[in-house]
Amino acid sequence: MQQSSFFVVARRFCKHRLAVVCLVILLALILLAVLAPWIAPYGPTKISGGFSKPPDAEHWLGTDQIGRDMFSRLLYAMRVSLLVGFLATLISTAIGVVLGLVSGYFGGWIDRVIMSFTDMVMSFPYILLVLVAAAIFEPGMWTMIVILGLVDWPGVARLVRGNVLSLRETNFCKSDITSGMPGRYILFSEILPNTLAPVLVYATSVFAISILDEAALSFLGMGVQPPTASLGNILNGAQSITVLTGKPWLWLPAGILIILLVMCINFVGDALRDALDPRGSL
């Protein structure tokens, strides 16, 4: 039974051709990133050729300013970017779901306190927050994961709260009350499963945004620190005008990868939203 509903979702997902293509690209990229140590021809920090050499047979995407293989660095960079995006999304979604559930279900002053706090976090210019935090704590991958995780949750919290509020008024929750079912049953067996689909869809966009944020912060030098490669700090090397105009292999592949990742994640999320709607056509 569980399997058959999975197939229904998969079939509906496959109707979106673009999303299927994106999913394939995304999975391929993730596979490349995961298998980087085995695929990459050189180590990510190993100096293996001349400085800023254009692509050739030995270095498919050329070498960077200090002679490291760009292709290898890109693979490792993708690893870091995906990991940051994934863990930040995981943290912020977990916080958002818990706060949203509590806020929506219990209501009253708990709701008001949580929602005021949410608005506060939401209204804060968080790039600034992240910069300050990165300045206070040691900038690095883990700091960035925690910081992004701690600022990205308000959207999830509001989404879940709104869902809980509307689900609480449905007749199936009311008939649980009239059947004498306990609150935990209503919350975890009726409300939570019905909010997971929109949360999952929302999480894909948080994932995409987290990757962008990582790139932005690393570009500014407040994120992942060299020599560890990330898509953002590879772009950092493109700050000089000579690189930008004369040596596109130093920044173009990283830029394309970011666009590809973010775009694919968003398209997959869109298709997922349609596929997970239980009232949708089979």
Binding site: T170, N171, F172, K174, S175, E190, P193, N194, P278, R279
Partner: peptide, 11 residues
């Protein structure tokens, strides 16, 4: 309830 559609959890 009147509205049987929303009386049953769709999932």
């Amino acid at each position: 309830f009147q509205d049987s559609g929303s009386s049953l959890n769709p999932r």
